[in-house]
Design a protein around this nucleic acid. Structure first.
Lengths: 193, 193, 193, 193
DNA sequence: ACATACGGGACCTCCCGTTGCT
DNA sequence: AGCAACGGGAGGTCCCGTATGT
């Protein structure tokens, strides 16, 4: 009756799905990584691996969203916040020795066609990030349509840069992408002088 | 003794790896999809599944590079070429009912940590696209350093937009990302008047 | 605290063991079929699945014995009673859409070697039917030895016919077997004129 | 490349299904009992356990039919042949220490409802025995209708008696059933004096 | 009386790679 | 080139029994 067995399984799964993918990660890997009992797996996740995957996506998506919130709260302006958001992703990439990039992307690509439930959960995760950023952009005085486009561009740039950065084992792509997105945002902002 | 058995296997594998991922695709799926004989699988690919994956990545990477070449050859300027490159990716996404996004990304994320050989092949693929684009940018008068950064930004934007577009089942993210990249390129070009 | 929870579990188990067998029926099936609470399963049956099986056999065996009693009580002579006993088995087979044949036979065959306790309970069930019938035959004037043989023959015929009838999804084998047994009994009866 | 791996698996499976039932017997038991390799199981039986069960039923059914053929060929008359058929079943029961009764009955009862394919194969097995016996009875001068009924009665008696004999660990039920069936057959034969 | 959780293990399926025979 | 069989192992699912709190 260890406290948080279920949560430990989700956390372990999230990390493994992020690193190795959904298909390549087995229950055995999850319980070994989390130090959780085998027998309780099906008890906590009667929906099977798919349910585990879903909860892992929700967890990972929430962490990314929290990071964005923090950056928005602590930065002087939106463009800077986005730069810090990208930088934070780069730090976590380095901290994990380039094992943990985006907690959603791998599963998203694997399951987009094969497992509708998971694919939709991943799409919802990306959408949530975009909407949070779009809200901030609108508050900074950018028109709704342009704010939506910039948010989409930012999330796409983050995802693509994380992919390249992880493959290449260096965070440069994240820095470049951050510059590009920040420039675009600053160009869209009304003059503040 | 069918002509091109080996090539048919690679093509089938490339498509399946792209759609379902490396781990989720088995030999059985490959031979069934390609209509190729079972018995000669390991004859043609003594390196096993890893070799098959490698050749599939090489094939897919080459196709993307060819598309870029064509766009560069047919467009009036580099920025327009990039826009057409992104648009072509969107067309292929639609044509495949959003099953086939990037032929490299899924495998890249799955194997970045777990299968070094494949991970490196994927990194090389991305790098090749970047270098081709960088060459074109330099020829258009952009300084080498800026050209490299813009190329990296472009590939990242393409990858991220393809990911979002596939999850969302609509090509809008590709259009937005194309605009962003084209703007950045045009701003970097020397005046052409 | 539902009234008769225990009995409902036994009844559900009896039906499932009869239909699908002992090994193929799990606790989950039993609680679902009976609508009984999960948590008290092992409270009511500390002996585990084996105890549940035992009680199910006792229940089923008792029902068959009751049916025999009724036929003996209501029929003009023993041979007729046996015919009605077989006919009643056929009716229950039809009523259950050929799902419920003998409540003992399947478990008996499955556990004869593997689970001595259950095997013996099944043997006892068959023996009880035989003895009840033998008593009736002796009361009809048949010598003890002949009565025992005829009883054994009758129970064997009933079991074999139920097996064939269930497989074939028609009650004809029961009718044929009933005729055969009734003839044998009538031939053994002392003249009644 | 041991000769007859596939056949050895079927033989082992037939024996285990007969003794413990279809549901209680796992692949592991089969390969251990037969000394056959694990990895070839799915190769030889792509239809899975159901296919294995089917082939085991066909094998067992054929053995019983062969025994009947032999008895018919070697006995002076049909009634005697049936008596010897029942006696042979009893001998095999004793030889196996009451582990092996009918090779079809257990699976028949377990799968009659749950696995249509197997249930039908079992029904076909019983039917084949009946038809072989009916042919012999007709050749002995018994009318077709009566011959069919007597065959059904005989198979039912054999099955029921085997069930009782196995539970009780004594062959007496088989002897009694054999007498009953032989009497019925002799009564149906035309006078031979 | 009932529920939640723990535990280990077995279920069937199927994979990937190898080995000799066409 | 192609095939059929081998061979071990891991895939996810689910079971049965126990322990711990209501």
């Amino acid at each position: 009756m260890a406290p948080g067995t279920r949560d430990r399984m989700i956390a372990a799964a999230a990390r493994l799905f992020q690193r190795d993918g959904y298909a390549a990660t087995g229950w055995r890997d999850v319980v070994e990584a989390g130090g959780t009992p085998w027998g309780s797996a099906h008890h906590h996740f009667p929906g099977g691996k798919e349910q585990l995957g879903l909860e892992a996506i929700v967890l990972g998506s929430g962490q990314v969203l929290s990071a964005l919130e923090e950056c928005l709260a602590g930065a002087p302006d939106v463009a800077t916040a986005v730069e810090r958001w990208f930088a934070a992703a780069g730090q976590s990439l380095i901290a994990s020795q380039f094992e943990c990039g985006c907690p959603v992307a791998t599963v998203a690509l694997e399951t987009a066609t094969a497992v509708p439930t998971l694919g939709e959960a991943c799409a919802a995760a990306f959408r949530a990030w975009e909407e949070r950023l779009a809200t901030a952009l609108r508050r900074a005085g950018i028109a709704a349509g342009r704010a939506a486009d910039l948010s989409c561009q930012a999330v796409a740039a983050l995802e693509g840069a994380l992919l390249l950065a992880r493959c290449r084992r260096e965070v440069r792509p994240l820095e470049i992408a951050a510059d590009g997105v920040a420039d675009a945002i600053r160009a869209a902002l009304p003059w503040a002088d």
